[in-house]
Design a protein around this nucleic acid. Structure first.
Lengths: 221, 221
DNA sequence: TCTATTTAAAATGTCGACATTTTTGAATTA
DNA sequence: TAATTCAAAAATGTCGACATTTTAAATAGA
């Protein structure tokens, strides 16, 4: 029965996180204890422990005696998160460019190749494209060896996921946007390899901020 | 009996956080459920919920069926946290200098005055000095109106607390260091008011990194 | 009809109990 | 003596029960 080395609380945390990020539960949805217990087949304790961690991650809010709710989203929050992400990504990239070695360079070239090849292909599976896209950006900053900055970067990326999914729905078929996006990727690689810190930082910040205006429209329908 | 509007889990979270940061529990200490239940007079559930949040905050680690432990500290972690803090503080200050208005300026001047006055006084109470020091740095970055960046800043500050307390023990009596420190504060104020972003950023990063070498010595005894 | 008040139903947060796993330490063996 | 085995003790993680609070529904009053 117990297929994993993890405890129930951790397992339920993963599932809940995923379900919130993927929109199974929408912003402001009530997360009713009993309903969740039934859905995931768990008892009160591990469920509430998972919810406690989600509070610390800002994906859930709670009020005493009034239960748990999925965190709200808003245009203000969208802008703030993306701006913070852009700045942090710029910071990581700056350090990566300062510290990156030959392997860092070659990993960028490799990841860029995989992304470019797939972007040009006929039938694009969005999950696969996302993987390659993610890997490319990971490769760019991987020269920065700061666990804490990476943790912050990862945490902001997670917080942006619900907004990003709105963007993906709008742009999954838009090949023109995809091409603009791809040109930026190539430019980022070149700037990184040239160790042009300032220009690379400026571009990555703009690159990350690109979806914001589109998402804003989705949010205000 | 119930003196507050908070639930037990939140209250216990505050107490535990404080006790870990203040060294009541030392790095790697086992946090035994039963002992904590007795100490804080609470049941299993709220205690474990509090511990779950502490895990998300990196102050506690856990291993399935082996319980909870206070997070370790190390020279690597110390360096990483302080470097990340320095960068984030620089980022916040950069934005504050871009966006700060007259009130921002006047708040810096006021906080600087309160800190300077107290630093010059005869019998310095370290708690009060810390309050004024904290307020000054808060005033500097308060022009940056990004909730997320502030949250990151706050979180890193908290993570650095256990290290900072080592520094405070070493330097509580060292008036020479306090004077060097104070000169930097004045310089920071001047640069901020002059809107000299680059210089201010450079100085704040150095200012934050100053204690690191001293703390390293404390850590390796 | 609309607002207040009362009552019933539902949900939350906390507790102690218990099955399972880990740790301890004594007994046994080499 | 040192290492291994085994049994007892202790600790962890999960569960359902329950008191308290909130919400919803029903009733009464204006």
């Amino acid at each position: 029965m117990d297929t994993s080395r993890q405890n129930t609380a951790s397992q339920i945390l993963d599932k809940l996180t995923n379900d919130i990020l993927q929109g199974v539960y929408l912003p402001n949805d009530k997360l009713q204890i009993k309903a969740l217990k039934d859905r995931y087949n768990v008892g009160t304790s591990p469920l509430r422990e998972a919810l406690s961690q989600l509070i610390a991650k800002d994906l859930v809010v709670s009020e005493n005696q009034r239960g748990f709710y999925v965190s709200d989203i808003s245009i203000n929050d969208l802008t703030d998160i993306y701006q913070a992400r852009a700045k942090i990504e710029g910071l990581c990239l700056e350090i990566a460019i300062q510290q990156g070695d030959d392997f860092w360079e070659s990993n960028i070239i490799a990841a860029s190749h995989r992304l470019a090849k797939y972007t040009k292909s006929e039938n694009i599976d969005m999950d696969e494209w996302q993987n390659r896209h993610f890997s490319f950006h990971d490769a760019l900053v991987s020269g920065c060896n700061s666990p804490r900055l990476f943790q912050i970067r990862q945490s902001l990326y997670e917080k942006s996921t619900r907004y990003r999914n709105l963007w993906l729905k709008e742009n999954v078929t838009n090949s023109e946007n995809l091409q603009i996006n791809q040109n930026e990727h190539v430019a980022l690689m070149v700037l990184a390899l040239e160790r042009d810190t300032k220009a690379a930082q400026k571009l990555i910040e703009a690159h990350i901020m690109t979806p914001v205006e589109i998402i804003k429209k989705s949010l205000s329908y």
